[in-house]
Nucleic acid binder design. Structure first.
Length: 598
RNA sequence: GCCAAAAUAGCUCAGUGGUAGAGCAACGCUCUCGUAAAGCGUAGGUCGUCGGUUCAAAUCCGACUUUUGGCUCCA
């Protein structure tokens, strides 16, 4: 997958369209109250910005000293007091000059800077409550009486660059959450707890799926046997589906000579994500951060005719990218990962069908993995001079992306100018079981690489022409996808993915032999089965299997041995069924085939 | 990389300057058991690493490593 040259636009966490919302006003007002409390505690504080965000608010400050947990407690106390005082929020439209004088006199440099950024046609307004006045567009609640002193909580302290630019001063950001009433706050905090329980890093440890090792390097994932089984199930399905959908599978090297990366341009624009070269026979070799140049080499291995296009070439390609130490995060942000990458090379008149096909295929895969809530983002050509390729191609490419989205009836937003310099793209965001959005799939045009590598095909008219090239990753990276999958299912994988599908539990040692025999039979049938012949009692074994979230427990004793059957207990509870071994095998096979949960 | 916090047994955690602890897991013994934890016992840690302060450091200080929450970036 090519792409991901750095995007210029910044991700904005603030949510739109919430200005009308009461809670939004509450949160925004809460930010002001917090700023008032902070200024009261540290009068020399310089205040920066303090918006409402999803679930809460924050405010950035330049403080005389770092904050501690106790400071947060103290600030919370002051906030509660301020709220109880019932201070009124008063809006005042002011002239630019008035505002400037005011903030100059208050020595609020950041506010002066913000003031400059306000367009000349916009009205400048200030909000005051108590002793605190802020440059602010509003809206706010009428009075702090509308805020509930028991329905907010300051959550964390973080560093944040002024205006999000690391060249600027680092400020102290205080995050808080605020709700209409204490009950809502409790529910929110409970939700945070639930999210913690599903955290893939926690479950990865509890279920023995993967690890990382300080001594061996951060951001590098070690897949344990159980994680490996799940990965295998994912990849097997992935390969089978790709073959069914007209893809060929490639394998490419992990390193390439500098020529490759110079030609692709990565050494120029992707350099900061690439690792230093290694010397081989006096040549510089780079470990790959992307697979695309390799696929292009295969394309260029021979003359290509229009008759063999489209080519759909996929690879589970493992790439390594340098990521700054502070951004690494479990499986979601790592330094080595496997992309489920593919490149499509086609003629311009094939492009529309190809895009539609990719999108369909993508949605099909997401459904199989239990995700159905999907939103598309269409990113179009960046502004003047910031992209390569001619207008007509951009237009055609963008339109074929749009048509595909509309044909599939997907909800989508257009990100005007948000495309990469080499082409427009569609990103898909999926919603997980907890309603969180994750960006996984990306489908990107590339007008750059075919040019750089001088890729051609011989058309009907005997002339050499430039093929269209599309990069796409459906799951994104296997690591990240796996992390999201673990959280989506909370570790309770559907049968087809579960590392252990059935655990056989003899009621007593006397039945261990039958249990072992049963296991052999299940393995022979292609099922993932284990037998628990430990010293523990049956109840303890059940409890353990339950905690490991194994879909099926097969309890076997005298009755089952006599009748060559199993007593099936599902992890969902204790409804039990007795069935013959053959029945259980076909029962499970069907669940796997249909990708049912249990 | 930057700001802040953290790192104690395989896991979860207690231990605030004076001889390293608990529960679970592991191992051993007893029990031979029908749908979420039987009982008893044993072993396990140079308290992330290196340096400093101190008569004495898990504890105080510094550097480094890793992790966490953010900033930035992104699959």
């Amino acid at each position: 997958m090519n792409t991901w040259y750095r995007e210029e636009r910044r991700y904005n966490r603030r949510i739109k369209n919430m200005t009308e919302d009461k809670l939004h006003k509450v949160r925004h007002s809460m930010a002001h109250v917090m700023a008032e409390a902070v200024l009261e505690k540290f009068p020399e504080t310089k205040i920066a910005i303090g918006p409402a965000i999803e679930d809460g608010f924050y405010y950035d400050f330049e403080l005389p000293r770092p904050l501690t947990e106790e400071d947060l407690e103290d600030i919370s106390e002051r906030m509660r007091r301020i709220i109880k005082e019932g201070q009124e929020f008063q809006r005042k439209a002011v002239s630019r000059k008035e505002a400037e004088e005011f903030f100059r006199q208050q020595k609020q440099d950041y506010k002066l800077e913000l003031l400059e950024a306000i367009g000349p046609e916009e009205e400048v307004s200030m909000y005051t409550q108590g002793n605190f006045t802020d440059l602010c567009r509003g809206p706010h609640v009428e009075s702090t009486k509308e805020l509930n002193p028991q329905a907010f909580q300051l959550l964390s302290i973080a560093g944040a660059y002024w205006r999000g630019d690391e060249k600027n001063q680092m400020l102290t950001r205080i995050y808080g959450t605020a709700w209409n009433n204490p009950k809502e706050l409790r529910q929110y905090l409970q939700r945070l707890e639930d999210i913690k329980k599903r955290d893939h890093r926690r479950l990865g440890k509890e279920l023995d799926l993967f690890s990382t090792h300080e001594e061996a390097g951060p951001g590098l994932i070690y897949w344990h046997p159980k994680g490996g089984r799940i990965r295998l199930a994912i990849e097997d399905y992935w390969r089978a589906e790709h073959l069914k959908n007209g893809y060929e599978l490639l394998y490419s090297p992990h390193v390439g000579k500098s020529w490759l990366w110079e030609t692709s341009g990565h050494l120029g624009f992707y350099n900061e994500n690439m690792y230093s070269p290694m010397k081989v026979d006096e040549n510089d070799y780079y470990i790959k951060p992307m697979n695309c140049p390799f696929h292009i080499m295969i394309y260029k291995n021979g003359l290509r005719s229009y008759r063999e296009l489209p080519l759909r070439w996929a690879e589970l390609g493992t790439v390594y990218r340098y990521e700054r130490s502070g951004v690494l995060h479990g499986l979601l942000r790592v330094r080595g990962f496997t992309q489920d990458d593919a490149h499509i090379f086609c003629t311009p008149d094939q492009i529309e069908d190809e895009i539609l096909e990719v999108l369909r295929f993508s949605l099909h895969m997401w459904k199989a993995f239990g995700f159905s809530d999907i939103k598309a983002y269409l990113a179009t050509r960046p502004g003047e001079g910031k992209s390569v390729g001619d207008d007509a191609s951009w237009q055609q490419a963008t339109e074929s992306l749009r048509k595909a989205i509309e044909a599939e009836g997907l909800d989508y937003e257009v990100d005007e100018g948000g495309g990469a310099f080499y082409g427009p793209k569609i990103d898909l965001k999926i919603k997980d079981a907890l309603g969180r959005e994750w960006q996984m799939t990306t489908v990107q045009f590339d007008f750059n690489l075919p040019e750089r590598f001088d890729m051609t095909f011989v058309d009907r008219d005997g002339k050499e022409k430039r093929p269209y090239m599309v990069h796409r990753a459906l799951l994104g990276s296997i690591e990240r996808f796996f992390g999201v999958l673990v959280e989506h299912y909370g570790g309770a994988f559907p049968v087809w993915l579960a590392p252990v599908q059935a655990r056989i539990i003899p009621v007593a040692e006397a039945f261990n032999d039958y249990a072992r025999e049963l296991k052999a039979q299940l393995l022979a049938a292609g099922l993932r089965a284990e037998v628990d012949v430990s010293e523990a009692r049956m109840n303890a074994k059940i409890r353990e299997a339950q905690q490991e979230k194994i879909p099926y427990m097969l309890i076997v004793g005298e009755k089952e041995r006599e009748s060559r059957s199993v007593s099936l207990r599902r992890r969902s509870g204790n409804q039990q069924e007795v069935m013959s071994i053959e029945e259980f095998i076909s029962f499970t096979r069907q669940k796997i085939e249909n990708k049912e949960e249990l």
